[in-house]
Structures are given as C-alpha cells and as structure tokens.
Design a protein around this nucleic acid. Structure first.
Lengths: 349, 349
DNA sequence: CGAGCTAACTGAATCGATCCAGACAGCGAA
DNA sequence: TTCGCTGTCTGGATCGATTCAGTTAGCTCG
C-alpha cells in the first residue's frame, strides 16, 4: 500500500490540483507565482516526501547537467597523490561548488575511443596536463566548452603560468653564485617513456609541448647569460613525478665522483628537487655547499622543512579557479598566463 | 546550411529507413539484429557524425546514470592532499572505470540541505570518513545503494579495517621495550574543534565514533597488559591531519623537560607521526633512543625515509575497490573488516 | 464603461532515448 | 497444409521534468 514508485512532480501537481507548470515554477522561478501558493506547494512536497525535480529528467529537458568533467592526463592514482594536481582540483571544486555544479573526475589513461558512462553529459571539460594524444579529445562533444590547463588544444583557451619567465628567473638567481657544473632534471620530455640521461641532440626536438619548451627556453637563456653553453649542460629525464620513479634516476647522479657531480641541479618540479635533497642528505652531501637545488611549484612539503627549498611558487589553486570560471562562463574564455613568485630557500640561497 | 542541431537517434533512423528501436539495438544489443544491418547503421552513424545515444536521455529512460558519487567528510582540498583518502579514491576509480562508470566527487563540507547539482542522479553513494552529521545523509535518495567507509551509517553496510586489533598489536609491540611515559596523539576525538591535551574524563565519552573508540580500546588493552594505567596516559587531540595543524600541538609536547616528555608516542596516523618525527629531529632528539614513535596507515612517505616509520599498514586502495564493488553489486553488500599488517621500522624497533 | 495591462496560472509539446508487445517472413516438422 | 518457432525488425508508450503560448481574473485609467 505504500507508494509503489517515487513521487513525481506530476503526482504532486495532481494532489494539489494545480498544473505541473506551476509546481515546476515553485521550485525554479519563485517570481512566477504567488508566495502563498508557493508555500503551499513546498509544504505539501515536504509532507509527501517529494525531493524536488528529478535531476535526470531536468538535464534531458534543459540540456544542462550541472556537471563539469575534469580530465586528468595521468592516472587518478598518480594525480591524486600529486600535490599540484590536487591543488588544481581544489580550485576547480571551490568554484563549481559555489555555483551549484559538481565535479566528475576522469583520467585520460582509461579513456578509450568512447567516453565512459556519463562523461558525455558534462556541461564542460577541463583538461589538465600533457595528454597522451590529442585525438583523445575528439571524442568529447564538440559544442561543449573546453579549457586546457598546462597544455594546449588548438582553437581552445588554455591556462598556463609564465613558465619561461619563471624558469629564467630562478635559473638566473641560482647562477648568481659561481657554478661549475649545472645540470637540469626534466619531466616527461619525450613521447616514449625514458628515464635517465638525455643526449643533447634529442632535447628540444622532442620537446613539442609548450610547457616543456618554455621551461627549457627560460633555463637556457639564463645559462647563456651566465656564460654556460646550454648545449653542454647535462640533462636527465624523469617519466613520473613520484619519489619511486625519481630516485633511481637521481641516485647515479649523486654518486658521481666529486669532480663530475653537478653542483647545481635545476629541477622542473619540487617533487624531483625534494627527492634529490633527501637522497643527497642520506649521502652526507652538504646543502647548499656541495650541491644547490631548485624546484618548481612551491608545494607545502618543500617549504615546511629544513633546509627549505628554493623554488618558484605557482598558484595551482588559482589556475583551477580560473579554469572553472571560464567553463561556467563567469569569465570570458581566453588563454592566459599566470605569474609566479620566486621563493628563495636554503637549498639555493 | 550545416546541421542546425545535433543529430539524434531518430534522425539516423529516418536517414536509414529503419526504426529507432533498431538503431538503439545496434548500439546496445548487437544480438537483436543482423550483423549486416548493424554494420550499416554504425557506419552511417560514423559518417553522419552521430556520437551514440545521448547520455542524458538514456539516464532518464533507464533510470541509471552510470555515475557513482563519493562523499568525502572533509573538504576536497584536505582530502585530495591526504594520502589515505587519495588511495581510497584510486581504488574506487579503478573498479568504476573497469565497469564503465564514472566518479562524481562531493564534499560533505559543502553540502547544504539540498544536494548540489547533479549529485542526486548518482546510481550509488560511497561515504568516507567521519561525517559532520548523520542528517546530511538523509538528503540522499533513499533507494540508492550506499556504502560507508571508516564510518557507520545505521542500516547500511560499512567497511573498516580491524582498528582495535591493529592498535592493540602496534601498542603491544611498542611496549615490549621498557617505557616510562607513553602518550597518545589522536585525531578528531571531539565533536567541537579542539587542538591540544585532552583531560582523562573527556576521553571515551566523546569518542562516539566506532573508529576512534576501537583504536583507543586497542591501545588501552595493550597499555593495561603492559602494566600502565590507561587513564593516566596523557592524550592529545588534533583536528586536521596536516602538518600545519599537527605541528603546533606537537611542539609543546617535545619541548617538555626531559623528565616530563613522553618517551613513546602512539599516533593514530602516519601524518601525525611524521610531523612529530621531523620536529623531534629538528630539536636534536635521538630516534628511537630519546623518543619512540608509531603511526597508522602505512603511507609511502613514512616508508621511504630514514628513520623508517613503525606503523600499521592498511590497504586503502583495497577498501576503495571493495566499496566500489559493493555499490555496483559485484559483491553482495555486507559490512566487513579488513586486516592490517604491522610494519616495524626504525622509529620504534 | 470599456480598453489595456499585469499577475497568476494552465495545457500540451518537447527533450532523446529505451523497450515492450507484436508483426512478419522463412523454415522445418508433423 | 498447417502449426509453431526463430530471427529480425517496428510502433509507440514512456521516463520526469521545462517552457512557450496562451487564458482568465482583477485592476487602473481616461
């Protein structure tokens, strides 16, 4: 005898003797009906256990789902453990949530030729990081807004920090002190997975992505100005920004004999720099006397330790907010470049 | 002249001279039509740019959205930076994704009396962590499946690790060596925010939540067996599992005079233990000679450092997988207790 | 008084699929 | 020949809302 199926707006309308349009207005457009009737409708709804208009039906009718999808280049496992990606997500969530939208999380790693499940009903897409392939983005609904972060998609707005300037600035700072053997540790330089040293001729060729190219350009300009030959500066590549992947690449560098080991390592992420810092300390190297280190990102972990990491702080939360605002149309969509802040710590004073 | 609006299944059917039912079957039930016709339909769809059935319409008709919502007790910012929550999410995502479902992320912190946006169309809910209030869960659709993790919801299945046994085991291990002044650092003991020492009479009273009660019970049993009076063991409370919040509570403990300072700290999370470890090292205390420390969780950060943290490893990824499997109905829904593993490191050998 | 206007409410079309109940053809068996 | 069966395909009701184009009542104003 209890209600066999869920209450619908139509049931409620019949119960009250008004039209469905009026009930709909009671929930969505209070100005379209008298306050008295509205109260009566909402009261009756509560009494009968009607939870408000069904989201599925509404989304079909209006064409909007109030869902924004974030597509992460890396696997979720990786991204969720990455401080920078996490910050971005918080920024996105903060804005979405203030606007009554919700966040759908996808990883490009698991996307096949078809969008999984309900991903295609998102009202907009935020793509973050170096996508394995652009073709993947073609499965997305073409008319939905899309914003790229730390990545470029032709014809779509993208959000970056000013990587070139940031890298130039931090490298210039680092090179103020006499440096014999600078080195660079980069991230995901090549299309194919490859951990370890990179030959000079491979470098810029493979760096098709804006972000990597910009960073190298910044480093090279500073190196050049300081009288170093950029092409002669050794460079190592790391495939994944985690301790476990960084460590085996960094250990051999630190284990080089004193007269071969770099005395300055420019790292493109704090995670890399912190790994190097920890491993160097384990080996009894003095920081910064024997080895100076710089990072990139400005994550908390690098700032709340001794020695504090010299790095460039980028506001990933703000990047996330910005992307979300654009997607929601609160801000006109336009590519933009956020500025960064040089944080001088003890790892490279 | 280009198509004014998106192609629909009906357009495609008209174009091909078949019924909409047949086109629908071509996409969803290959066995319901001849392979030849199916090929023709899919080919034509590709040619005309039809991307497959609209997810919004499908979800209205079928009643299922292929979306599973995860509701996190803490803010997204916090949860995304917490290694344990991140692991849980990866586990959930792994299973969802293999089953063609997607993950909607919600934080209880931002949930009002109404579910935001599209949250109500999820096919199921996974709630994680100590919810600020149970009433919040009443806004969820009652007929949708729900699984609680590290938390209990009356009448619903929940997933926990065997907290009592784990805490008993690690405390027993720690108390094998002579200990003069053990102490306990706990997490979110009280309903109201409160950082710092907890008076003995406040303790179990306020620990309404299963997880906290179980852990304390385990500790107390081991303390009792080792000849300590549990009620006399000092305890501190911490509101948020982050370095920034932990540090100000822990510093005064470490700054106590030698004959007052605990020589063993049982911490309910690795984050707390690691914070204590770092701060203790800063102060020149010897680990484990001057201070022994135990954690809980077994996060990577505690295992890839020197001294390595003594802790209890819980498999949060597996918790996530399990919750997801139950929600999807791959596993019958039933409360369960996962086992843990004692990891003996250098912080408390 | 009657035209004009506004506020309040209604009826029905519509969004784009799914899926049941059947129609029809072809075929083998009785 | 007739019956039943299987394999294909179709028509149309349905999911639960939103929204447009009215209709009606009541009020104002010249």
């Amino acid at each position: 005898m209890s209600t066999p199926r869920r209450m619908t707006l139509k049931d409620l309308a019949r119960e009250l003797g008004v039209s469905t349009a009026t009930v709909s207005n009671a929930f969505n457009r209070p100005d379209q009906l008298s306050p008295a009737l509205r109260e009566r409708i909402l009261g009756e709804a509560r009494r009968l256990g009607y939870r408000g208009p069904d989201a599925k039906a509404r989304s079909l009718r209006t064409g909007r789902s109030r869902i924004i999808a974030v597509i992460l280049a890396e696997s979720l496992t990786y991204s969720l453990n990455d401080a920078v990606a996490s910050e971005l997500l918080s920024g996105v969530a903060e804005v979405l949530d203030a606007q009554g939208h919700t966040l759908l999380l996808l990883s490009a790693r698991q996307m096949q030729s078809e969008l999984p499940g309900a991903a295609s009903m998102a009202d907009g897409y935020i793509v973050y990081g170096l996508m394995p392939s652009q073709s993947l983005l073609e499965t997305l609904p073409t008319q939905a807004p899309l914003v790229a972060v730390d990545f470029d998609v032709t014809g779509r707005p993208s959000i970056h920090v000013d990587d070139e300037h940031a890298c130039y600035t931090i490298a210039r700072h680092a090179l103020r002190r006499a440096t014999r053997r600078p080195g660079i540790i980069n991230l995901r330089l090549t299309a194919e997975a490859c951990n370890g040293p990179i030959a000079p001729d491979q470098r810029l060729l493979s760096a098709e992505q804006t972000i990597t190219r910009s960073r190298l350009t910044g480093f090279y300009r500073a190196l050049d100005e300081a009288g170093h030959d950029p092409a002669a500066v050794p460079m190592w590549n790391i495939e994944e920004n985690t301790f476990e992947v960084c460590a085996p690449v960094i250990e051999p560098i630190l284990d080089l004999p004193d007269d071969k080991r770099p005395d300055l390592l420019l790292c493109v992420s704090d995670r890399i720099a912190l790994t190097a810092l920890t491993l160097a300390e384990d080996r009894g190297l003095r920081i910064p006397e024997d080895l100076r280190l710089t990072g990139f990102d400005g994550i908390a972990e690098g700032q709340y330790r001794a020695p504090r990491l010299t790095t460039v702080r980028q506001d990933s939360v703000e990047k996330g907010r910005m992307a979300a605002r654009m997607i929601l149309g609160l801000t006109p969509p336009a590519s933009s470049l956020l500025s960064t802040e040089l944080l001088i710590g003890d790892s490279c004073p």
